[in-house]
Amino acid sequence: MERRELDFVVLNQGYVSVNGRELEHEASGNALLTELYRNHIADWPKFFKMDTLSKAGFVASELLIKELGEHRLGSEEFAQGRAIVLFGATASLCADRNYQETIQDKDNYYPSPALFVYTLPNIVTGEIAIRNHWRGETSFYVTEAPDAAQMAFHLACAFQDQVTDSILAGWVDSSRNDDFQAFMTVVRREDAADTGWIEGQLKRMINILNNK
């Protein structure tokens, strides 16, 4: 039996697609994330407080969940079994810089608590988990570039706990406030054993991301 390809979202500062269908948009950079939020999400004001990394991860996850038709308040079992495993290259460097600007000048030294809370890359996984009431494992791996084999390996490891049933997985990176790249998909336990197939699916998404 032929296996159904994984659903996915690809997003960068000037491009957004869901399962390869490009979404219309007018803005670019950080304003694109706000446009996507207003047009497709619009009911989570905390979005405006997020750093670019979290905004990109949040928007990508929301578009994907919409495409999958998942009910946000799923069963307890679903919530426990949904993990989040994300990868990125520059971690929270962008938020780190923004925060540092608030403490750079000793005569204008006002550390911003709101910027400080985003100075960890795994905050994006928390933002997504809180929004969806998911209580599975969350991880954020820092690696030089998206590598399908490496990602497939870590996803296979995550399924070994016997609790995880599905994983929101992908790449999310932001090196500057107006610059971001993300792709996101959901991998299910029944597909996880075939790491070669998962790797192929991820490669397809990485190719789109790299060519946009």
Binding site: P45, K49, Y110, P111, S112, P113, A114, V117
Partner: peptide, 17 residues
């Protein structure tokens, strides 16, 4: 306004700044 604890800290910074 549905503010949270981080917002409270930001308001403290605002008053000082």
């Amino acid at each position: 306004l549905g503010l949270d604890s981080i917002d409270a800290l930001e308001l403290i910074v605002l008053m000082e700044k």
